[in-house]
Amino acid sequence: MAQNIIHLVNVSKNYNGTEALRNINLYIRKNEFLTLLGPSGCGKTTTLRIIGGFEAPDGGEVLFNGVNITSVPPYKRRVNTVFQKYALFPHLNVFENIAFGLKIKKMDKKLIAEKVHNILGLVNLSGFEQREIDSLSGGQQQRVAIARALVNEPEVLLLDEPLGALDLKLRQEMQIELKNMQQRLGITFVYVTHDQEEALSMSDTIVVMKEGSIQQIGSPIDIYNEPKNSFVADFIGESNIVSGIMLRDYLVKFAETTFECVDHGFKENEPVDVVIRPEDIQVVPAAESKLQGEVSAVTFKGVHYEMIVQNNSTRWKIQSTAMAPVGAKVGLQILPEAIHIMKKVTVK
């Protein structure tokens, strides 16, 4: 059984009376890549800062290898952080930045030089020791920030949207590199992002957060295929979310049409949210389906077309490699497995 390295127990936090975190319970396993995902203001960065020790929770405990570290200051935690805008020290060069933590620990000079040399090799910046921070590109600064944290051999590395400032191509490269690094070093990564693609492609575990509370914890595949509520469904990937009524087990009605589905356990005639991924809807000739509509927009997206189909009261977003022209009457086919039924979220 994998060991839990960090455990948050009933953690809550208020800022000037507004709840930033509400009863967060979360454990992080050793050596996993865990991502805190959510829109801005959801509390993901606050959670990270509580783990790093930069914020004290108002309630609850933080356990590290089973020991309560809630009131341990950041400089005594075996945790290091890669900050959002890197927070590199501008008055120090690359070597001095990376050596900062080691010098604080009064490590032998030779050993420091060796460690810095090795870590620069790891992040592909060999020979950059004497460069000034100002003279580095964004991607290079990013690597220095990672090296500066990793050289201290933390048990947990915290990353606060570290790729946010990079352009798309560089970001994708760094995603792969970070994932490789994490697997090679066997360090626990706690990663904060608002980018769902990034979360899906890198993580072992994703924690979806909204307004200070956890919505769902699971593997990327679980989260994508079995979103627990319409918020998660909407936030992870694109979705059509419509209101419906659960007539009885395995039978749901939406868009004035009755469909078979695989969900059960709801009350009879209970109002529900129905979630259908755009790629799970097939376009068929109008006569072959009980749900029809008219194509109102078509956009070419490279790999597929994205179509908007209007059916009486509902707009459907559809992704398909086949294309129907604007104005065409089409039928929409949805398989029972593609229909995800969720309890209505009570909107606060």
Binding site: G52, F54, P73, P74, T81, F100, I104
Partner: peptide
Amino acid sequence: EAALDLGA
């Protein structure tokens, strides 16, 4: 915070 994080 970065300095604290690195042990200062």
